[in-house]
Deep mutational scan, measured.
Amino acid sequence: SASLEDVKTAVLGLLVILQTKLYTLPASHATRVYEMLVSHIQLHYKHSYTLPIASSIRLQAFDFLLLLRADSLHRLGLPNKDGVVRFSPYCVCDYMEPERGSEKKTSGPLSPPTGPPGPAPAGPAVRLGSVPYSLLFRVLLQCLKQESDWKVLKLVLGRLPESLRYKVLIFTSPCSVDQLCSALCSMLSGPKTLERLRGAPEGF
């Protein structure tokens, strides 16, 4: 439990870093931090981490990651405290083949985003970082199938509809809506759902 406290501190630090690096160059920093966060949550489900502190780590990670939004130009952003989304000039939600690297070039400044813009690109060529939603999407499927803490599952179920409104997140990387529907149906009809959940409301 003591070591998990250190892990929790590290994860919180990564969330803060991602919130900053999403809007700064090099964009590969945001890509790497995002991948680290998603990989860490995957390990929770792989090794069945069920301690309360592990659940709190997942809760905080999902609470942040499910706020990711994308505009029509595929640029990622996060809402501010007033709910207004600021889109990044440097990070996009497109999935890119590994051989192309985590970044790609664009020939010049991008068109203005639909929300308040981030800082304008400084040079004639900007390297865009790929932060594909499919990585998070796979972890969300694991959550629906394996999550043991009701608070975490409730958060994910509550945030998913709003995330799905931003269709560009889903359609720019390999996210299977069929698998999502299947996971939701299995969660509702499967007898093991109630068996594994802690803290579920009576009558769920």
Rank of each mutant, 00 (worst) to 15 (best):
R196V: 05
L68R: 03
K145E: 15
V168R: 10
K151Q: 15
L136R: 01
A54P: 01
P191D: 15
L14I: 06
V139E: 05
T50D: 14
V92S: 07
P109H: 13
S72K: 15
L73Q: 11
Y90H: 08
H40S: 02
L180Q: 00
Q142R: 08
P201T: 09
P109E: 14
E103Y: 12
T193R: 10
K46Y: 14
G190V: 07
L51M: 09
G108R: 11
S3R: 08
L169A: 06
I53Q: 04
R86W: 06
L76K: 02
S88Q: 02
L155C: 12
C175Q: 05
L153A: 01
C143T: 05
Q146K: 12
S173K: 03
Y95K: 09
S72L: 07
L51I: 07
H40P: 00
E35R: 14
N80A: 10
L51D: 07
F87M: 06
G190S: 12
F137H: 04
L188F: 07
S186K: 15
R75A: 04
F87E: 03
L194Q: 08
E202W: 07
E97L: 13
Q42T: 10
S163M: 13
R75F: 06
K21R: 07
E35Y: 11
A70M: 03
C143D: 01
L160R: 00
S88T: 08
F87G: 04
P113Q: 13
S48H: 12
L73P: 03
W150S: 01
L22I: 09
A54W: 04
Y133L: 05
E5K: 06
K154S: 10
P132T: 05
C181I: 06
V168K: 09
M187F: 08
A10Q: 00
L73Y: 12
P26E: 05
Q142M: 10
F137M: 05
E5L: 08
S173M: 02
D94A: 06
C181M: 06
F137V: 04
T114F: 15
S107C: 12
H44V: 00
S28F: 08
D178I: 04
P132S: 06
Y34P: 02
K192T: 14
L157I: 04
A70K: 02
V11E: 02
P201N: 15
S176I: 05
T50Q: 11
M187H: 01
L135I: 12
P79Y: 05
I53D: 02
P132V: 04
T24K: 10
